[in-house]
């Protein structure tokens, strides 16, 4: 009768395979983490200053409607001033059926804002303010569409680039807030106004594409 013999065979690698697999897993994880880090799209959307708010997220839906109307009207008011050197009056804007000035059904639903135009020329600066206040009792803030046109170039000054955006929109949560005496950033900021920044298509493209 043959006796069964037993022999214990130990793995040739003596546990090295486990180490290899573990090492490979760590290598894959590290490579993935590095690639993900390198390929991350940095948000190219500009951050806001402390005196700025974002229309998209910081205004209520009715205020956002007023802002969007104002933001679109600004392009045309600005263009007409460039061509004809006049600031359209509130009556003219109503006549042009431009929101948020024209008194239509949307105007009624969006706070019935009363608008006022004030011109404040200062040296080479041509300044116009369109200030809007909602009807009493509405939980909406005040808006100012501010135009700052620097005509220094036209007067022979060597400077060719404008030092300021042609227009800005400012917001104050108080419905009856009047415009500050000094139409500078500091004047607005110290009076508690916030500059409203649109979340634009350009911002969205930068966010998506990096």
């Amino acid at each position: 009768m043959n006796k069964t013999s037993r022999q214990l065979v130990s793995p040739s690698g003596k546990g090295r395979e486990t180490m290899y697999v573990l090492f490979a897993a760590i290598l894959v994880a590290a490579t993935c983490a590095t690639l993900i880090f390198l390929n991350q799209k940095q948000s190219a959307v500009a951050g806001l200053e402390s005196f700025q708010i974002r229309a998209f997220s910081d205004l209520n839906d009715k205020e956002l409607a007023v802002f969007n109307g104002l933001y679109t009207a600004a392009v045309e008011i600005n263009g007409i001033h460039d061509d004809e050197e006049e600031w359209l009056t509130v009556k003219q804007l109503e006549g042009e059926l431009m929101p948020p000035f024209t008194k239509d059904s949307s105007w009624k639903k969006s706070g019935k804002y009363t608008w006022d135009r004030v011109l404040r020329p200062a040296g080479s600066m041509d300044i116009a303010l369109y200030t809007g206040h909602p009807e009493k009792g509405k939980k909406m803030g005040s808006f100012i569409l501010l135009f700052l046109h620097d005509h220094a170039k036209k007067q022979g000054n060597a400077r060719t680039e404008p030092t300021h955006a042609p227009y800005e929109i400012w917001y104050h949560p108080a419905p009856g807030k009047t415009a500050p005496q000094v139409a500078t950033d500091q004047g607005f900021i110290s009076a508690g106004w916030k500059e409203v920044i649109a979340y634009s298509g350009e911002d969205e493209v930068k966010r998506v594409k990096g």
């Binding site: 998209f56 839906d61 969007n68 392009v75 649109a198 979340y199 634009s200 298509g201 350009e202 969205e204």
Partner: peptide
């Protein structure tokens, strides 16, 4: 030309 470059976008309500 990105036509929406200067449009103020709003959220889906």
């Amino acid at each position: 030309i990105f036509a929406n470059k200067d449009v103020s976008l709003i959220p889906v309500a």
